[in-house]
Simulated scan of single mutants.
Amino acid sequence: MISQIEGLPAGTLGFRAHGQVTADDYESIIVPDVEAAFALNRKLRLLYVTAEDFTGFDPGAMWNDAKLGARHFSGWDRVALVTDVPWLRVTAATFSFAIPAQVRLFHAAEIEQATAWITEASDG
């Protein structure tokens, strides 16, 4: 299940993953929010948090994530991933070089720092 993180500034989206994330979670929550935000903004920032009860992604969810990322490949300004899940941290670190955005990993205890970083003004 995916829930929205409220209270972020315009141009910044936040999502929290709970339990097993499914393709339907992407289609019903993430995709509409991302598409609506890109209709208003050239660049977006993303805060993605895995909750303590996060268990993983269904294959369909991973495919939808890849499709969404490819569709807006150069549209991301910053991406903050907040997780203590070892395989997710390794995967994100391994592939972050391929994303044309600033990508930072944070541990669950660093949620406040991640939120501050994703919402701070750009360097230039």
Rank of each mutant, 00 (worst) to 15 (best):
V90H: 11
V34G: 01
V79A: 02
S74M: 09
P59K: 12
A70F: 10
A121L: 06
F95K: 05
V85C: 00
E52V: 13
W63D: 13
V21N: 11
R42Y: 03
L88M: 03
A92K: 08
L13E: 07
V82L: 04
F54D: 13
T94A: 13
G11K: 01
F73L: 09
G14W: 08
Q113M: 13
H72C: 07
S3M: 03
L47S: 10
Q20K: 04
I29T: 13
A36L: 07
V34S: 00
F54C: 15
V85K: 08
A108F: 04
T94N: 05
Q102G: 06
F15T: 00
T94F: 12
Y48A: 12
A114I: 05
V49C: 12
E120A: 10
A98Y: 01
Y26C: 08
I111G: 04
N41L: 07
L13P: 05
L8Y: 11
W63E: 13
S122N: 10
N41T: 06
A98I: 05
E110Y: 05
H107D: 09
T22L: 07
I111S: 05
H18C: 08
D53S: 09
F15L: 03
M62H: 14
F95E: 00
R78K: 15
A36Y: 06
D123F: 12
G69N: 03
A109Q: 05
S3Q: 11
G60M: 09
A108V: 12
H72R: 07
L47F: 12
P100L: 07
K43G: 04
D53H: 02
V21D: 02
R104F: 04
G7N: 14
T115S: 11
L46E: 06
Q113G: 12
Y48S: 15
A23R: 13
F106E: 00
G60H: 08
A101K: 09
G7T: 10
A93V: 08
V90F: 11
K43T: 13
